[in-house]
Amino acid sequence: MKKLTLMLAAAAAGIAISANAYAQDVTLRLHQMLPPQATIPAKALEPWAAKVMEESNGRIKVEHYPSMQLGGKPPSLYDQARDGVVDLIWTVIGYTPGRFPSTEVFELPFMVTNAEATSKAFHEYCEEHCQDEFQGVKVIAWHTHGPGLIHSKQPVQKLEDLNGLKLRGATRVINQMLEELGATPVGMPVPAVPESLSKGVIDGATIPWEVTVPLKISELVDNHTGFAGEHGLYAATFVFAMNQSSYDNLPDDLKKVIDDNSGIETAGLFGKAMDEGDVTGLEIAKKAGDNIYMLDGEERQRWVDTATPLIDAWAAEMDKAGKDGKALVDQARSLIDKYSGGS
Rank of each mutant, 00 (worst) to 15 (best):
W142H: 15
Q154Y: 03
V213W: 06
I150D: 02
T212L: 04
E124V: 07
G200P: 09
T225M: 12
L167R: 06
C126R: 05
M177E: 13
M188E: 08
Q176C: 03
T118E: 12
M111C: 02
P109H: 09
D132K: 13
P214Q: 08
P189M: 10
G164N: 06
C130I: 08
W209S: 05
H143K: 08
V112P: 06
F238V: 09
F240L: 12
G204A: 09
P155E: 10
P191L: 06
E127Y: 07
L215H: 07
N114V: 01
Q157D: 12
I217D: 00
A236D: 14
R99M: 11
E133H: 04
M177W: 04
A117F: 04
E128A: 10
L159W: 09
V221Y: 01
F238Y: 15
E116D: 05
T237C: 07
P194A: 07
E180D: 09
K158I: 03
Y125R: 02
K166E: 02
M188C: 06
G164S: 06
S198V: 03
P194C: 11
L108N: 08
A192D: 15
P109M: 04
S152F: 00
P101M: 11
Q131A: 14
D203I: 01
V186H: 09
P194Y: 10
L159V: 10
Q135Y: 04
M188P: 00
E104L: 04
A235Y: 01
P185Q: 06
Y234G: 00
E116N: 01
G187L: 11
E195L: 15
S218N: 14
A115W: 00
G232Y: 05
T184A: 14
T212Y: 01
D132L: 05
G148T: 11
N223F: 00
D222K: 13
E104D: 13
V173N: 14
E160C: 04
N114E: 08
C126V: 11
P208C: 08
L233R: 00
Q176Y: 13
S218K: 05
S196A: 15
T144M: 15
I207V: 15
A205I: 04
I174R: 14
F238D: 12
S152V: 01
G169D: 12
L108K: 05
L215F: 12
N223Y: 00
P214K: 07
K199F: 12
E116C: 02
A236S: 15
A192T: 07
T144C: 15
A117N: 06
T206L: 15
S102I: 08
P194V: 07
V186P: 07
G148R: 09
Q135C: 04
K120S: 01
D222T: 11
M188I: 02
R168Q: 14
H151S: 13
E107P: 06
I202T: 00
G232R: 02
P109V: 03
G146I: 12
M188A: 14
L197F: 08
H145T: 14
N175Y: 13
L149F: 10
A115S: 09
E210C: 12
C130S: 13
L215Q: 10
